[in-house]
């Protein structure tokens, strides 16, 4: 419905992993937003836990400020943990 607020949906795919943003749903309130999220995004066993949050409550960075926010990090390659050997068994790092 066009007058329903938008909710962002986060799914934890299995225990130990973080919730990931997967999309959004419209719903009149929080309880139904959870149900809509369940019916829309976990129909194929994608999840063990769900979060929904009103899209309006998310504070986003300004794309116009992308330069000053993000570019200074681009030439500081020493901040990346690329100088370590990561064993194959270590996942999700």
């Amino acid at each position: 419905m066009s007058d329903w607020p938008l909710w962002e949906v986060f799914v934890r795919t299995k225990g130990g992993l973080a919730h990931r943003h997967v999309g959004s749903v419209h719903a009149p309130d929080a309880e139904l937003a959870l149900r809509h999220a369940r019916d829309t995004y976990t129909r194929r066993m994608e999840g063990v836990s769900l979060w929904v949050v009103r899209s309006a409550d998310i504070v986003a960075s300004d794309p116009d400020q992308a330069g000053e926010l993000f570019e200074p990090a681009a030439d500081k390659v020493y901040r990346h943990p690329t100088f370590y050997d990561i064993p194959d068994e270590v996942k999700h790092i």
Binding site: M1, W4, V25, H26, A27, R35, H36, D39, T40
Partner: peptide
């Protein structure tokens, strides 16, 4: 259904 989300609920 009244919305795509409800459509999926009912189909489920």
């Amino acid at each position: 259904a009244p919305s795509v989300e409800v459509d999926l609920s009912l189909s489920n």
